[in-house]
Design a protein around this nucleic acid. Structure first.
Lengths: 173, 173
DNA sequence: AATTACATGTAATCCGTTACATGATTGA
DNA sequence: TCAATCATGTAACGGATTACATGTAATT
C-alpha cells in the first residue's frame, strides 16, 4: 500500500483513487482495509500522519511515506513477485457449455464481449490522462490482454455454440 | 462445484483434478473448501454420497450429482457471470519501476517471462490430452492470454527499464 | 427533499488457505 | 527408513468485503 510515493494522501483520497483511478482495472480496496492498513503502517513508522483541520469539512489525516517506509518499499519491490491470482466465473461457465441452451450461451458470450468493450473504452480514457511510465505500462498491458481475450472469444465462440446445439440435438434423440 | 457432471468422484479425486488437471490454470481448491462444500451439497440434496469400502486403502466416499443438482447447476450457469477477479503482484511492482535498480527490475521481468513459458508448456501438455469442448476452449483461452501477456512484456519492457535507469541517473545528480 | 461528496473509522461476516489429526501402503 | 500416495475431515487463522455509525455541506 505504499502508493503514497505518488504523493501524500488521506485514506479517503486513496480509496477514491483506487476506485475511479487508472488502477481500478487491477487493484481496489475498501475503507475496511485501507484505514487499518494506514494505522499499521503508522505504528510501524513507515508512514507519518499529520492532522489537517478544514473548515466546512471534516478533519483530514494526511499520510506521508517516511524514509524508512520508502526503504522498506524498495526492498519489498525487489523480492520475487508472487503469482497472479485469477478467478473467472465466465470461464467456469464455458466449461459446461453443453448444459446451456444455445440462446443462453450466446447471451453470456455477448455480455462478456460487451464488458470487454466497456473496459477497453475505460482504459483508453485513462491513457489520455498523464501517467507515469509504470502506470502507462500497466494500463497498456491491461488493454492488450482485454483485446486478446475479446479477439479469442470472437474467433472461437462458434465452437462452444455448436457444442451447445449438438448437445440439444443429442438430448432430443 | 458441480464439476461432478464429468463423472462421480471423491473429495480427494476432485482435489487432485483441480491441482494437477487442466483446470489448475484457472481454478483450484483445498480440502478445507472441498469437503465442507460436498457436505453442504449433500445436505441440500444436490449430490448423493455412497460409501465404498476398499481393502488396503481408506474408505472412499463417492459423490454423484442428483437430478435436482443437475437442474440447479443448469439454472446457475444461465445466470449472468460475475466479473473476473484478477490480482497481480507483478503489475503492482511495475507501477514503481523507478524505485528499483535496473538489474532488479530486469530480473523480475525475466522471471515473469520464464513463468509464462512454463505455463504455456503446461497448457500445451493439457491440450494433447482428450478434452471436452468447454475445457479445450478454456485451455486455449488461457494459452492465448499468456501468449499475449508475454508478447506485450517483451515488446514493452524497455520502457520500464529505461525509466529505472533514468531514475538512477536523476538520483545521482 | 433527497442524494452525493466529503471524511474516518469499527464490527460483523465471509471465504479461503494452512495446518493439524489420523492412518495404512507403496516405492525409493 | 523416509517420503509420497491414498483418504477424510476439522480448527485456526488471515485477508478482505459489507455494513454500520456519524456528521456537514453542496448539489439536484
Amino acid at each position: 500500500m505504499g502508493l503514497l510515493t505518488f504523493g501524500d494522501a488521506s485514506g479517503y483520497e486513496i480509496q477514491k483513487q483506487l476506485k475511479n483511478g487508472c488502477f481500478s482495472a487491477f487493484f481496489d480496496a475498501s475503507y475496511g482495509s485501507i484505514y487499518p492498513a494506514l494505522g499499521r503502517l503508522t505504528d510501524d513508522g513507515l508512514v507519518s500522519c499529520t492532522e489537517l483541520a478544514q473548515d466546512k469539512r471534516p478533519d483530514k489525516k494526511i499520510y506521508r511515506i517516511t524514509p524508512n517506509g520508502r526503504l522498506t518499499l524498495v526492498r519489498t519491490l525487489a523480492e520475487p513477485a508472487e503469482p497472479d491470482r485469477f478467478r473467472s466465473d465466465f470461464l467456469a461457465k464455458m466449461l459446461f457449455c453443453d448444459l446451456l441452451l444455445p440462446a443462453e450461451l450466446s447471451k453470456l458470450i455477448d455480455r462478456r464481449l460487451e464488458r470487454h468493450e466497456e473496459i477497453l473504452a475505460q482504459l483508453d480514457e485513462y491513457m489520455e490522462t498523464s501517467l507515469n511510465v509504470g502506470a502507462e505500462f500497466t494500463v497498456r498491458y491491461a488493454r492488450a490482454l482485454h483485446e486478446a481475450a475479446a479477439r479469442f472469444i470472437r474467433e472461437n465462440r462458434h465452437l462452444l455454440e455448436v457444442e451447445a446445439l449438438r448437445a440439444r440435438v443429442e438430448l432430443a434423440e
